[in-house]
Simulated scan of single mutants.
Amino acid sequence: MQQKNSRAYAYYGSLVLFLVLFTWGFFEVVEALQTNEVAAFDTKIINEVQSWINEGRTARMIFFTNLGSVLFFSVATGVISLFLVIRRRYGWALFFVLVNGLGGAFNHFLKELFQRQRPDILPLIEQGGYSFPSGHSMGSFIFYGALSFMLFRLVHGKWKKTVSALVAGSMIFLIGLSRIYLGVHYPSDVAAGFSIGAAWLFFWIMLFHFTEYRLARRLSPR
């Protein structure tokens, strides 16, 4: 029992630590943006990434960027949530809808708050709206991170859990990279999107666990 409690404390402590670290990381990027300390960093990364441009790679990057679009996330969230409802996983379905749906609304709020214009260095696709933080980067961390979290809890087998985490991490990275490659985001937009997306995800995971705990306490025999 003591060992089980120690693992639980370590797990929940890690969630709190990650929430604090990623929130701090986001505000560090905001501070650097406001003092214009990111200009050299952004230019260096953009020049490096866009030096890779060729026709075949551009087609692949557009494919990855589409896997981080609002349309894709909306359809995928609906399909996955419906599947969870059919399987009577109502709590998981609600979690998945809320973490993604409200995450998108939160990103829109942040974009309107900062109102950073998009880069004009060799854009390969057209993209409207403001730039900071990257919605694709934030949304991908939330969507693929939440999906990986669910698979960790619902799927048996360590190799399946490991594969799901690796695929999720790869998708998040490639979607963020695609936004820089395609010239529609600064690297600092992507870093901020990853940071605040991770913080949002860990907050909702903690809220999910708290709700689970409260329900278990309510349903347990007195």
Rank of each mutant, 00 (worst) to 15 (best):
N66V: 01
G13D: 09
D189H: 04
R7W: 10
R89P: 00
G101K: 09
F132M: 00
H209E: 15
I142T: 05
G56V: 06
Y12N: 08
F143E: 02
A93K: 04
S170K: 07
V167T: 12
I175H: 02
R87T: 04
G91F: 07
L151N: 05
V163F: 09
L17C: 05
L215D: 11
F41R: 03
F41V: 07
D189C: 06
F95G: 02
I142H: 07
F152I: 03
N47M: 13
W52T: 05
Y12R: 12
V38E: 01
S220Q: 11
I53Q: 13
A8D: 09
E55P: 06
F64K: 07
L71R: 14
F63D: 06
F63A: 10
T23P: 02
Q2V: 06
S81N: 09
G78R: 11
P123V: 01
T162V: 06
F64P: 02
R214H: 10
Y90C: 00
I205K: 06
F114L: 04
F72Y: 14
S188Q: 03
R88Q: 12
G25R: 04
M171T: 03
N47K: 14
W159H: 06
T43P: 00
A168R: 01
P221I: 00
R217D: 09
A39S: 06
I121M: 08
V184K: 01
F114K: 03
Q117Y: 08
A40L: 13
A216K: 13
G91D: 10
F109I: 01
E112S: 03
I142S: 12
E55D: 15
A199S: 15
A192F: 05
L177K: 06
I142G: 04
S195G: 04
I205Y: 09
V85G: 02
E212Q: 14
G25K: 08
I196L: 13
I80M: 11
K160H: 13
F27G: 01
A146L: 11
R218Y: 15
G169P: 04
N36L: 06
L124Q: 11
W159C: 00
R153E: 14
G56Y: 13
E37S: 13
K44T: 15
L215W: 13
A40Q: 12
R7V: 05
L177Y: 15
E212L: 14
A199E: 04
H108G: 00
I86N: 04
F132Y: 08
Q115V: 01
K158D: 08
G176W: 02
E126Q: 14
L151V: 13
L177R: 03
S170H: 10
Q117N: 07
F202G: 01
S188C: 05
L219W: 13
E48L: 15
Q34Y: 03
M150N: 10
T162M: 06
G197T: 04
L215R: 15
R217G: 04
M171F: 15
A191G: 05
G78A: 13
F63E: 12
R116Q: 05
A165R: 03
T58G: 09
M138F: 10
R7L: 13
D42C: 05
E55N: 15
T65I: 07
H136E: 08
F210I: 11
L17K: 01
T43D: 09
G78M: 11
W24G: 07
A10T: 10
M206A: 14
F202V: 04
M1I: 11
P187V: 00
I121V: 15
I86H: 10
L98A: 13
L84C: 07
W204K: 05
F149S: 05
K160R: 13
